[in-house]
Structures are given as structure tokens and as C-alpha cells.
Amino acid sequence: MSPLLIVEDSDEDYEVLCWALHKTGFTHPIIRAACAEEALSRLFPGLPQLGGIDESPCMVLLDFNLPGINGLQMLKEIRQTKPLLAIPIVVMSTSNNPLDVEACYRFGAAGYILKPFKLEEYLEKIRGLEDYWFNTALLPECAGGGD
């Protein structure tokens, strides 16, 4: 199974996300990049694969607020790299600023989720995310793998 790439700098947020994925019975392997630079190095073909996973992710959960290259800039980078355009990227953010939301979609985000404050809501949103992307929609088999 293709892995899910989580780009998240906050350990706590990563832990809550993993907790929610685990709680909802998510079975895909999960790889984490703590910053956009690390994520990009994983996604770009030809670069040395890190973390022992040589398979391209089938999906990316991208934190909006990242140190260094932020989420929006990373979206722009990916947009300029044709093979990566196939990977759906869902942005997770604390910002409900309409401008941020609009900018993410404009640069190719497949979805935008506001990070919930209550655990129940968190579970609900992750469940919804899985239901759609992993049970309803078809994901690319090996995006970014080939040419």
C-alpha cells in the first residue's frame, strides 16, 4: 500500500493526527516530514529516499503553518513539477482566513481542513477524510514514481 505523507512540524499535532488515524482504523503506512524541505526531498524523484520507504505517497496531509518553506510555498513548488501534480494534497490549518483557504485551492490543494479543537471533532473529520479519499475516491497507484 502506498504511504500517506504527513507534513507537520508540531510533534503534538502529529501525535493527535496519528491517534485519530489509528482510532479510525487507518491501515496505510504513514511517513512524516517535519518540514517542507524534507517533504520535497521525499517527493522529488531521483533524490535519495529517506526513512527506508521507497514508494511514493498516495496522498499528502500538509500543515499550512510550517517553519521555513510554508505550506503555501510548498504547494507552489509541487505545482511546478508535473509528475507530482497527480498526488492529492489536503491542507490542514488553524487558519480560517478566507484568503488562506482560497490561496491553497488556487495552488492546487485537493482539500482544506480546519484543525479542530475538540477530539471528537478531530475524529469526525479524519473519519470523513478517510471515507472519501480512501474508501470512496480512487487514488493514483504510484504518483511521481515514473518519469
Binding site: E12, D13, T94, K115, L119
Partner: peptide, 20 residues
Amino acid sequence: SHDLQEPLRGIANYAQFLLD
């Protein structure tokens, strides 16, 4: 305020973990 949201959510989350 943006940056304050994150730790705050963390506090809320862990308090809920404790409760659960």
C-alpha cells in the same frame, strides 16, 4: 494569535486525552 492557537489546541487535546 496564529502561533498561539497551536499550543492551545495541544493543551486542549492532551486534557481530553487525560479525560478519555
